[in-house]
Nucleic acid binder design. Structure first.
Length: 433
RNA sequence: GGAGGGGUGGCUGAGUGGUUGAAAGCACCGGUCUUGAAAACCGGCAACGGGGCAACUCGUUCGGGGGUUCGAAUCCCUCCCCCUCCGCCA
């Protein structure tokens, strides 16, 4: 959610920054709505003040007299009440229009974000490139001979539908090991607190982290038996990422500054409808309706979010380094960033089967964008309540890490188990397929 | 699913129609005292929004929404959430 005061003060700047993301905002309409809302409010408040004073007078009269003559006053209030009712209706309508616009506008890009319409404007952070890539094409993960023994899309299609998979034996264990390893690393080495969060969340949470209202079609909704689905405010959703359940921990709360930063990590299943991705990555495990992901969330003071962002990026990187998977880091351009982000780094892992880098983690600083939607605040040193900053990052996507291992660790005998995972795999050193 | 109880400021917790935005306590901030600290005492301390250069002022908010009333934290309806007991179930 955007600070309407800032828009009011600098509408052109706001419009320009939105334009960097390819969004054309009708700021004039926003300003008009805002102005008329405020005018209406002033009017309303004067009437309310009048009503309150008259009511108090009636109360005083009744306290003095046994049979007071207050009919005149009551009649006056009746007239005012009608006017108030009218105005309230108007204001609520105006406000609804305004909110609909504001809730649908993405966060403003930070100044150091490259301007561009899409991913071709992303910038690689050269210094962060890691590992030696294998430029000899290997089998893609789903092409590995007999892999369907352990990675079964057919049965999943029968039981669930497209974009689901059964993992078996060594691959199921590998997925579990990866999740375990990542969690342990972030808990022990990176100072995150492990959370086992709900996978189903309510409307307010989804609005808070901005999956709603704009991206409803990407979500799975949970229909409870006898649920009244016309009650829009009371719907339930499967989380598309643990970011939702982790970040909303601080929703509608005032946190003590001494408790910041908060650092949460969770390993959860994630659910995405992939409505807009028909035909993309239809083979293999790259794009599934359900996948495992380790998610990092940090909550900080505004002054510290940038340094926390870098820190979080390093936490995510450390996972790929320890797994010895080659990757590069991209600074996303304004047109490629997610809705809530003001600055995002993507980690892209090398997939020798595709001979290309694929996104395996996205690390974003959301500034106060989500905090405003969530009313997530803290008390600063002057005891003022301020919005905090929220950050989130994958650390990392487990499903994609599994694919990366399948493609980078292929040997004639099977899939070699990365050194750091062996202890999570009962000392198994090769997964025979 | 059945029966009952409850949701009040950062926290605990009073308050059942009329200056109650809300007692009291804790926490926090300032001061007095003290060599310093603690204790004690005195004072301050909600959020959000409108108007104003400002001092300030006005409005809204006691789980959410709706209603009754001149006036609602207090009465009514509805939804959500929490607790206790019974039933069912992983």
């Amino acid at each position: 959610m955007h600070d309407i005061q800032k828009i009011r003060e600098n509408p052109e700047i706001f419009a320009e920054l939105q334009l960097r993301r390819g969004i054309e905002v009708d700021v004039e309409q926003v300003i008009t709505l805002d102005t008329s809302k405020r005018a209406q409010m002033t009017k309303l408040q004067n009437l309310q003040n009048e009503r309150n004073e008259l009511s108090q007078k009636i109360g005083l009269q009744k306290g003095k007299d046994k049979n007071p003559t207050v009919d005149d006053l009551i009649n006056k209030v009746h007239v005012i009440k009608d006017q108030i009712l009218q105005l309230e209706k108007q204001i609520s309508a105006t406000n609804k229009d305004l909110e609909l616009i504001l809730l649908g506008l993405p966060n403003l890009p930070s100044d150091d974000v490259p301007i561009g319409s899409d991913e071709s404007f992303n910038i690689e952070i050269e210094a962060k490139r890691f590992g030696k890539i294998n430029d000899k094409k290997t089998a893609e993960h789903f092409e590995i001979a007999s892999i369907d023994r352990l990675m079964d899309f057919e049965t999943a299609a029968k039981v669930s539908g497209s974009r689901f998979v059964y993992l078996r034996g060594g691959l199921a264990m590998l997925e579990r090991a990866l999740g375990q390893f990542m969690l342990d690393t972030h808990i022990i080495k990176n100072g995150y607190t492990e959370i086992a969060p709900p996978l189903i969340v309510n409307n307010s949470s989804m609005v808070g982290t901005a999956q709603l209202p704009k991206f409803e079609e990407d979500q799975f909704q949970v229909i409870v038996h006898d649920n009244d689905i016309t009650d829009q405010g009371n719907r339930k959703w499967l989380i598309p990422t643990a970011e939702v359940s982790l970040t909303n921990i601080v929703r509608e709360k005032i946190t003590n500054k001494a408790d910041l930063p908060l650092r949460f990590v969770a390993l959860t299943s994630c659910f995405r409808a992939e409505a807009g991705a028909a035909g993309r990555d239809t083979r293999g495990m790259i794009r599934q309706h359900q996948f495992q992901k380790v998610e990092l969330v940090s909550i900080t003071e505004p002054e510290k979010s940038e340094q926390e962002h870098n820190r979080m990026l390093e936490c995510a990187e450390s996972i790929l380094k320890m797994l010895e998977l080659p990757y590069r880091v991209m600074l996303l351009s304004s047109g490629d960033m997610g809705f809530s982000a003001r600055k995002t780094y993507d980690l892209e892992v090398w997939m020798p089967g595709q001979q290309t880098y694929r996104e395996i983690s996205s690390v974003s600083n959301c500034g106060d964008f989500q905090a405003r939607r969530m009313m997530a605040r803290y008390k600063d040193d002057n005891k003022n309540t301020k919005y905090m900053h929220t950050l989130n990052g994958s650390g990392v996507a487990v499903g994609r890490a599994l694919i990366a291992i399948l493609e980078n660790y292929q040997t004639p005998d099977g899939i070699q188990v990365p050194e750091v995972l062996k202890k999570y795999m009962n000392d198994l050193s090769i997964i025979e397929i």
